[in-house]
Write a protein that binds this DNA or RNA. Structure first.
Lengths: 226, 226
DNA sequence: TGAATAGTGTCTTTCAGACAATATGCC
DNA sequence: GGCATATTGTCTGAAAGACACTATTCA
C-alpha cells in the first residue's frame, strides 16, 4: 500500500501536458487569431496555436498567461479555460494532452515582442485560416463557438475593447462575431440596459461625421447577464 | 532541431494526468454523488471522486466512462467534460493535473459491481457531503453549478430519467436541483414546448391517485434549447 | 450642402410568471 | 366519499424584435 514514504512517483507512464492559447483580437474589423509558424517536426511549416509544455510547478492559468505574454507582450487580458483535448493520436510525437485556453485583448494592447525570437507569428481572420497543425482547427472552432455564445450572455466583449469606446465600436464587434447585422436601436437599448457601462464626457473628434460619445465598463470583470 | 528521428520523449519532466468523474444520480428524491473511500495515503480515510491515472493510449472520455463502469456498472450515460484542475499543490504526491468529467444516470441503471473490489463506495447528497480529499469539494461545486445552469437551457435532464417517466418526475428533479418549488402549469408548458418529449400511451397505475401519463425523449442526445 | 455616422421611441410579439379548479384512480 | 396526485388556461408584465427619422461634424 502507498504511504508517504514509499510512494513511487515514476510508477506510471505519463502523457505530456501542454497549454495552448487561442488569442482573439479585432484587426481591421475582423476577428483574428494569433498563430505561430512551426519550425520543427512535427507539422513543420504549418501554423499552430501558441503553446508549450506545462512545467512541473506552474499553474495552468499562469502558463497560458505566460505564453501570450511571450508571444505578444499582452499582460492584462481576459483569459479563460476552454476545453482539454486528449485524443491519443493528436500529436505524433507521444501522448500529449492539451489544456486549451482562449484569450481576448484589443489589438492596441499588442506589443510585438517576437523580434528576438526565431518564430514567425501572424494574425489570421477566423474565417480564413491557413493549414493548421495537430487538431488546432478543432480547437479554434470550439473556442469560436464559446466566444460567440458567451458574448450573448456576459460582458466578455470588454476583453476586445480599449478603455474607452463608442457604442458603434461595440456593435461592430458583435456583428463581426455573429456574422450578421444588428439593429442599432435595439442593440444600444440592450447594451445600456445591462447597467455595466458608464458614459464618459469624451467624444471622438476629427472624423467627418457626428462625434460619438465614449463609454467605459464600470468593472473589467466577467459578469453573467440576467 | 527536433526531427522525427532525434525527438526525445523524456526531455521534459512531466506532470501526471488523472480523470475524475462526478457521477450524479437521484436517490430518494435527492441529488447524490458517488464517492469512494480512500484506502491509502494521501487523504487515507477521506472520501474522493472516482478517478484514476490516464493510461498512455486511452482517450480521456473513454477513461472517464471506464471509471464509472468499474464503480457502478453503468454503461450508457450522459458524460461531459467539466473542467481541468491543475493547481500545482492540489495533490501532495506530485504534480497531478485532473481532467474532471460529470456524468448523469438514473439510479435504476446502477449495478453495484464493487463486491470484488476493496474500495468502499457510497452515494452522498450534494448538500451533505463528508470530508473530501484533494480539491474534490471544489470540483463538486463547479460540477453542481454546471448541472444547475445547464438543465435550464438544454435537455440533459434525460440523463437522470429512466426510459419512460411522468412530467411530475421531471419537475421533481428540477425542483431538487434548483432547490425551490416550481409552478406546475408553467413547468409543464415549458417542458412540452421544447418539442423533445413524446407522450406514450402508458400510464403509471397501482398508486392511490390518478395515474400519470408517461413520456419519453424523442432522442437521448444533448440538445440546446432556443 | 453633401457625406458619413451618431443618436433616438413606438408598436408588436413572445416568453416568463402568477394564479385555482376539475379529473381520475385507489382505498 | 375521501385522499392523493394529474391535468388544464388566462392574465399580466418584461423583454426582444421590427421599423425611420433627426443631429452633428467635416470636407
Amino acid at each position: 500500500m502507498d504511504t508517504k514514504e514509499n510512494y513511487d512517483v515514476s510508477k506510471f507512464e505519463r502523457p505530456s501536458v501542454t497549454v495552448d492559447v487561442l488569442f482573439f483580437t479585432i484587426i481591421e474589423g475582423k476577428l483574428q487569431v494569433l498563430l505561430i509558424k512551426r519550425a520543427a517536426w512535427p507539422f513543420e511549416g504549418f501554423w499552430a496555436l501558441p503553446g508549450g509544455f506545462v512545467s512541473m510547478s506552474e499553474d495552468l492559468d499562469k502558463a497560458a498567461a505566460r505564453e501570450i505574454f511571450e508571444e505578444c507582450g499582452v499582460k492584462d487580458l481576459f483569459l479563460e479555460q476552454l476545453y482539454t483535448f486528449g485524443e491519443p493520436k493528436r500529436d505524433p510525437r507521444t501522448r500529449v494532452i492539451t489544456v486549451a485556453y482562449y484569450a481576448l485583448a484589443p489589438s492596441t494592447e499588442i506589443k510585438h515582442v517576437q523580434e528576438d525570437e526565431v518564430k514567425e507569428a501572424k494574425y489570421f481572420p477566423v474565417d480564413n485560416l491557413p493549414k493548421l497543425a495537430f487538431d488546432h482547427k478543432k480547437i479554434i472552432e470550439v473556442g469560436f463557438e464559446r466566444l460567440k455564445s458567451k458574448i450573448g450572455y456576459s460582458n466578455i466583449v470588454f476583453g476586445l475593447l480599449p478603455k474607452a469606446f463608442s457604442l458603434s465600436e461595440v456593435q461592430n464587434i458583435y456583428e463581426t462575431i455573429y456574422g450578421r447585422k444588428l439593429d442599432k436601436r435595439n442593440f444600444r437599448k440592450w447594451m445600456l440596459s445591462s447597467g455595466l457601462l458608464i458614459a464618459t464626457n469624451k467624444k471622438i473628434s476629427g472624423l467627418a461625421h457626428r462625434p460619438a460619445l465614449l463609454y467605459k465598463f464600470a468593472k473589467r470583470e466577467v459578469v453573467t447577464l440576467n
